[in-house]
């Protein structure tokens, strides 16, 4: 049963932030509503005010500027999927957008909504973590940039303050020669919550030595995570079957997934190792990328 609430329509982001400051913590923003409406119906959220962010132009736009790609928090997953900039500078994010829920949901769901919901299975998080993304958290008092890695702190918990909104996401334009990988493993070929998802980004120099490695995983920890020990083990070394296997093993060792309805802990752990190895191997071989969706 839906709780009762007021619906406020700010005319600008400044107005929205003012309203947030006024009513927080009893105020919840809505953009697409694809998470919030379900949460309201299920009684998981009972705000006094639902704040409409849809249509605020300050939250739109995908730009390349100052060596970063910047995406407004209100950008829909469908817009991410169709963006040339995302395709060019964040192909793993594009892959994730392509297997995010269903096309109907993608038309409405916002990037900020996915991140703020902070499900351990959030599809956009692993690619963004692998891109060293930052999120801009704004309030009436000002705004701050926080690395996405520091943004998530627990199951559905972030550092977002009750009066703040996630207004933008940015990541540095990847260096030439960066190879990306993404795979979402689910129990069905479409419209499935991930059992494990993995995103990799490996920057190699002309000699094939790994300059920077990022490995990010979803659904294997209380929050989307990077396996930093594995990343460090790759740094400064050429990608080889040996270094890849080591990174994959370290990644699996770094996570303590839970067993739930969808999968057992042992399976998730094993899949971390398998998927990380595969994605890195593809990066090494420059073979056609594993498609972002599950299936042979």
């Amino acid at each position: 049963m839906m709780p009762e609430f007021e619906f406020w329509r700010p005319q600008s982001l400044a107005g929205a932030l003012r309203m947030m400051a006024e009513v927080a913590p009893q105020i919840h923003p809505i953009s697409g509503g694809t998470n919030l409406v379900v949460d309201l119906r299920g009684g998981r959220q009972r705000p006094r005010v639902v704040l409409n962010l849809e249509g605020l132009s300050e939250l739109k736009g995908i730009r390349r500027e100052d060596g970063h790609v910047s995406v407004g928090g209100g950008i829909s997953i469908a817009e991410l999927l169709g963006s040339e900039l995302v395709y060019a500078y964040a192909p793993s994010l594009r892959d994730a957008a392509g297997v995010f829920a269903s096309p109907l949901v993608r038309n409405r769901a916002s990037l900020a909504g996915n991140l703020v919901d902070a499900s351990p299975a959030a599809d956009t998080a692993p690619p963004l973590l692998a891109l060293d993304a930052e999120v801009q958290l704004a309030s009436q008092a000002g705004s701050r940039w926080v690395s996405l890695d520091e943004f998530f702190v627990g199951v559905r918990k972030t550092v977002l303050r009750p009066e703040e909104l996630l207004v933008a996401v940015r990541w540095p334009v990847p260096a030439d020669g960066t190879r990306f990988g993404y795979y979402k493993l689910g129990l069905r070929k479409a419209d499935a919550i991930s059992v494990v998802s993995a995103a990799t980004a490996v920057e190699m120099d002309e000699k094939g030595v790994c300059v920077r490695a990022r490995i990010a995983l979803g659904s294997v920890a209380p929050r989307p995570v990077r396996t930093k020990a594995a990343e460090a083990a790759l740094q400064g070394k050429p990608l080889s079957e040996e270094t890849i296997r080591q990174a994959a093993r370290l990644s699996a060792e770094a996570v303590q997934p839970i067993s739930d309805l969808r999968a057992s802990a042992w399976y998730r752990k094993q899949m971390v190792e398998t998927l990380v190895a595969r994605l890195l191997r593809q990066s090494m071989e420059s073979t056609p990328r594993m498609e972002g969706k599950n299936g042979a």
């Binding site: 809505i30 829920a101 038309n107």
Partner: peptide, 24 residues
């Protein structure tokens, strides 16, 4: 939002009407 039976076109885009507030 799991089944799509409620799909409508909103300003030309196919969306789940069950996941929208009418006021939106």
């Amino acid at each position: 939002g799991d089944c799509g039976a409620c799909a409508v076109l909103m300003n030309g885009k196919a969306v789940n009407s069950c996941l929208m507030l009418a006021v939106q």
